[in-house]
Simulated scan of single mutants.
Amino acid sequence: MGEDRRQLIRSLGFLSSVGISLVAACLIGLALGHYLDKWLDTTPWMTLTWLGIGIIAGFRNVYILTQRELRRQKQGEDDQDNDES
């Protein structure tokens, strides 16, 4: 039962980090674009451009975190297989 609980906590931590990473990248892109629009008087082009870049960066972060988690899980399974042998 302890191992199941530990796995649940790891999964919840992973999912929350994915969500935070996606939202943070989008908000940073939006804020940067809004600031540049105010400064350069280019409304709404910088906001839209930097929001798009933020969204792309957010999904890139999700991809990287997912790949890292899959490698960690695969390594854990390999370690379990070696322990059982």
Score class of each variant (00 low, 15 high):
V62P: 01
L51A: 04
T42K: 11
D41L: 14
Y35S: 06
I20T: 13
G54Y: 02
H34T: 13
F14W: 14
P44T: 06
R10P: 04
T47Y: 01
L40Y: 11
Y63F: 13
L36P: 00
G19T: 08
L65P: 03
L65R: 09
T49P: 00
F59H: 08
S17D: 11
D37H: 06
S21H: 09
S11Q: 15
R10I: 12
W39D: 08
M46Q: 04
S17E: 10
T66Q: 13
I53L: 09
A25F: 11
M46W: 03
N61M: 10
G52F: 04
P44V: 05
I9V: 15
W39N: 09
L65F: 11
W45G: 01
L22M: 11
L51Q: 00
H34E: 04
I9C: 10
I28Y: 07
A25R: 06
A57W: 03
I55K: 02
G29V: 06
T66I: 07
A24E: 12
D41T: 12
G52N: 08
T47R: 01
K38W: 04
W50A: 01
L36W: 03
V23Y: 09
L27D: 06
S16P: 01
A57T: 07
R60W: 08
G52D: 05
I53V: 15
L22K: 04
D41E: 15
L30I: 04
S21F: 11
L22C: 06
L30F: 08
I64V: 14
I64H: 08
A24C: 12
F14V: 14
S17T: 10
I56D: 04
I53H: 02
L40A: 10
S16I: 13
S17G: 07
G58K: 02
I55R: 01
L30S: 03
R60C: 06
I56N: 06
L12Q: 14
G52R: 05
I64Q: 10
I20F: 14
Q67K: 15
Q67P: 05
L65I: 12
A57K: 03
P44R: 08
L22S: 05
N61R: 11
L22P: 01
V23C: 11
H34V: 10
I55H: 00
L15Y: 13
I20C: 07
W39P: 00
A57G: 05
A24F: 14
G52C: 08
G58I: 05
G54P: 02
T47V: 07
W50D: 00
